[in-house]
């Protein structure tokens, strides 16, 4: 496997790999996004308790899952970048971070918009929402640290270190917030019972999760391509590629 992976440490091969993968991700995103949204908004049955407001679940849950997923993949890329000194992995960290921050912001906004009709307030200090907010801070920290450095080589490594520190802290933060929440909130309101979700709602949710994952993949690939080009713009292969097409 290492033999197979090794060529992609080179920038031009990594760039080509991004180019080959991109159409697949893009197609999956477009198809799943359309199917998922139409199915979720128009065809899935209304919840017997929350009526039509529950339809926010079809974007809230995928974005919340992907906000965590994007952070962990960012941290994995950061570990690879620091341990094996792979510059491409470093660029991947920088490529994922803004996408992850956007997805986290979506999870927060949809959470608030769902909270208003259900809890009667835009913002409730619910454990999940609070964790998402802190996650957004962590993303913004990585991004602003990266942009504060003028030397982009040092910036990438600093961002990697911060991403790893963050991912070690994330479970601690998550559990402490959850614990704090049960301590301070008399009656905990759970958004949806995990015990049984009807298939008629489960499948559109799955399609939406796939759509979000593919979207994060697509934009990450585009941004990774940008980062590789930005770094390698004085190399001959970039010129040759542009002249060809």
């Amino acid at each position: 496997m290492w033999k197979w992976l090794h060529p992609y440490a080179k920038a031009d091969r990594a760039y080509q790999l991004c180019n080959t993968l991109l159409p697949y991700f893009a197609v999956v995103t477009v198809v799943c996004m359309i199917v998922g949204w139409v199915w979720g908004l128009a065809y899935a049955p209304a919840d017997y308790q929350q009526k039509d407001s529950y339809r926010i679940i079809f974007i809230h849950v995928p974005s919340a899952i992907l906000s965590m997923g994007a952070y962990s993949s960012m941290a994995i890329a950061a570990v690879i970048a620091l341990v094996w000194q792979l510059r491409n992995a470093e660029l991947a960290v920088i490529a994922i971070a803004p996408v992850g921050a956007c997805v986290t912001a979506i999870a927060l906004i949809t959470g608030a918009a769902w909270g208003k009709p259900m809890w009667g307030a835009w913002w409730v200090w619910d454990a999940r929402l609070t964790s998402e907010l802190i996650l957004l801070f962590l993303y913004l920290g990585v991004l602003s640290l990266y942009h504060a450095f003028e030397d982009k080589k040092a910036a990438g490594r600093a961002a990697c270190i911060l991403a790893i520190v963050g991912v070690i802290n994330l479970p601690i933060i998550h559990f402490s917030v959850e614990w704090w929440n049960t301590l301070h909130q008399g009656a905990t309101i759970t958004k949806f019972d995990t015990k049984a979700i009807d298939p008629s709602m489960f499948w559109p949710l799955m399609v939406n999760i796939v759509a979000f994952a593919a979207f994060v993949g697509t934009v990450t690939l585009i941004r990774l391509k940008n980062e590789i080009l930005q770094r390698e713009k004085h190399r001959p292969w970039v010129r040759q590629m542009l002249e060809r097409g």
Partner: peptide, 8 residues
């Protein structure tokens, strides 16, 4: 609320 979420 639904359209606000989906719109944003």
């Amino acid at each position: 609320y639904v359209w606000l979420s989906f719109g944003s």
